[in-house]
């Protein structure tokens, strides 16, 4: 009994100490598990060996150089950017419109429509890919860039809508009423008040859509046709022939680009209402 009441022992019981160590170790290991492969990939993109063997042969930038002169990769990159930009542009407009409709108006069938809107986020990519492929075959649209763009728009809209709606939900509707009160008609209210205040959300949604489009593999793989290979598809076909350090370099570049886009998107979602609010 006396031992238990000892105030020194009461402060941090042994089992709590152990628990804290285990928890810390668990946290660290999770990060190692997540990021070790990425770090290794980046390191070996600078390795002066032709083979990805795990032995370090000295620092080189040759794989990056090779990357930038590779004509096939250049074409795939151009395809990727073209498809992603068009899909982003269209889905941002539709996504914003749909989130405005969902947040502002009540209409018949809103509930099921709302649920259906987010379906592309939930259903497996492979299911969506197969469905889209069947659809294009059925309506006889030849597979190519167009079908990839349509498919990307189909899933991008949902993500844009989610991000824009989050922004809209915090929107004080009194601001729009104030604009109306000060002689702004519906269009001017949108132009001068709603749209500027929504802008950070719209941009964040667009960036997210762009990133997803740029990175997408499964859906693109199923809906691509001859000559419409995107960067992820190109990488996949290269990997089939064996992993080269060039692929490491390409992956590292894509990783960096995606990372920057996501950071920018998060930053836009957080700030942008006058107060600059760096993460």
């Amino acid at each position: 009994m006396t031992k238990r009441l000892n105030p020194q022992a009461m402060k941090t019981p042994f089992r709590f100490k152990i628990g804290r160590y285990i928890l810390t170790a668990h946290g660290l290991l999770s990060y190692v598990f997540l990021y070790a492969p990425i770090i290794i990939l980046i390191i070996f993109s600078f390795n002066a060996s032709k083979f990805v063997t795990g032995r370090w042969h000295g620092f080189t930038l040759i794989w990056y150089q090779k990357l930038f002169v590779d004509e096939a990769i250049g074409a795939a990159l151009r395809n990727s950017l073209y498809i992603s930009l068009v899909a982003t542009f269209v889905s941002t407009i539709f996504g914003t419109m749909v989130s405005l409709a969902m947040e502002r108006y009540n209409f018949w069938g809103k509930m099921p429509f709302d649920a259906l809107l987010y379906l592309p986020i939930i259903i497996p990519d492979i299911a969506m890919a197969v469905m889209l492929l069947l659809f294009f075959v059925m309506v006889k649209i030849p597979l190519g860039k167009l079908t990839i763009i349509i498919s990307h728009i189909a899933f991008d809209i949902s993500f844009v809508a989610i991000v824009v709606r989050a922004r809209l939900a915090q929107f004080d509707s009194a601001l729009e009423e104030a604009a109306q009160d000060l002689y702004a008609n519906n269009w001017k209210t949108f132009r001068y008040v709603t749209f500027p205040l929504l802008m950070p959300g719209i941009l964040a949604g667009a960036l997210l859509a762009f990133t997803l489009s740029l990175d997408d593999f499964v859906i693109t793989f199923f809906t691509a046709g001859p000559g419409s290979s995107t960067l992820p598809l190109r990488i996949y076909s290269l990997v089939k022939l064996g992993v080269t350090p060039e692929i490491n370099a390409l992956s590292a570049v894509m990783l960096l680009a995606s990372f920057l886009l996501v950071v920018l998107s998060v930053w836009l979602q957080k700030g942008g209402d006058g107060k600059v609010d760096f993460m």
Partner: peptide, 10 residues
């Protein structure tokens, strides 16, 4: 004059 003032923050 609105209860929340509704000044345009931007």
């Amino acid at each position: 004059v609105f209860q929340s003032y509704a000044l345009f923050p931007h």
